[in-house]
Design a protein around this nucleic acid. Structure first.
Lengths: 142, 142
DNA sequence: CCTCACGTTGACGTCAAGGGCAAGTCGACT
DNA sequence: AGTCGACTTGCCCTTGACGTCAACGTGAGG
């Protein structure tokens, strides 16, 4: 099982030890302790820290993560948490959609810069206009 | 063209006026000014602010946004910026992948909680294992 | 002219996610 | 026994994205 201390985990998960202690402080990463108090982690901690980083880098707050991670750990959720799980799921879905849109804009710019021929310009401009139209529609207040 | 002042833009784009002034301070949102100094925005500012929000909520920093937004504005990029555009594009792609993975974990938990029958359990557990295997592989240092 | 909501800049406050330092402890090696 | 790097807690510092408050200007209506 190759248990490790905080330094090795930090190195393998590419975060600082400070960050790992912070995660523990926030209740999103747990550790065993040696009799003298040093933190000891199992192999699975590496993947867990990566997941935490992904969630952070996607804009989730530590308290949100603290709420959903235990469910991911145990593989199931108390039924009264289902709604908040759905909420977070939807939030993530929205962020993904926003990101895909932003990426599409970048792609348009890249495409236009790399292949500035007229047909491409028209196609891309049209696509941008459709995107905008969709945006407007999606935004009409009920 | 229905120009507007900062209050209306804030309302329509669902951000605070403080945020809008902050965006201007960071050079990612520009405004015309009346002779007396009040900010005036055109219709397109609404969509622009939304895009800014999306990028922020996806974890991009304001300086990153400041770099790429002008290209999105003009629709093309100086060739020497292409590589950094590609870099940002790839970064966004990675964030999307991370998010999709995180969402998949949430979906697994939701599925297991809502339909805790044995077949589903097996299927989901297998999927999780495959996911982990992929993660491990994707991470082997060159 | 007065009012009153809306606008301006400037400065300070806040909150999250850590960074960095200090002062002491642990543990492996010589 | 000494030493040296990795570890501990505690504390304050920094950065980004705003919130908030102060003190003041603007402009359309009564």
């Amino acid at each position: 099982m190759h248990d490790m201390r905080i330094g090795e985990l930090a190195e393998r998960a590419r975060v600082s030890t400070r960050a790992l202690r912070y995660y523990e402080e926030q209740g999103i990463l747990h550790s065993e302790r040696t009799p003298s108090g040093q933190r000891v982690y199992g192999e699975s901690a590496v993947e867990r820290v990566r997941l935490i980083q992904h969630l952070f880098s996607a804009g989730l707050a530590s308290r949100t993560i603290a709420v959903i991670l235990p469910c991911v750990d145990t593989g199931h959720a108390p039924p009264e948490m289902l709604s908040s799980l759905h909420t977070e799921r939807d939030r993530i879905t929205n962020v993904i959609a926003d990101l895909e849109q932003a990426r599409q804009r970048l792609d348009d710019v890249i495409e236009l810069t790399e292949h500035p021929d007229a047909e491409h310009c028209d196609r891309v401009r049209d696509a941008a206009e459709r995107t905008n139209a969709i945006l407007e529609l999606a935004d009409q207040p009920g």
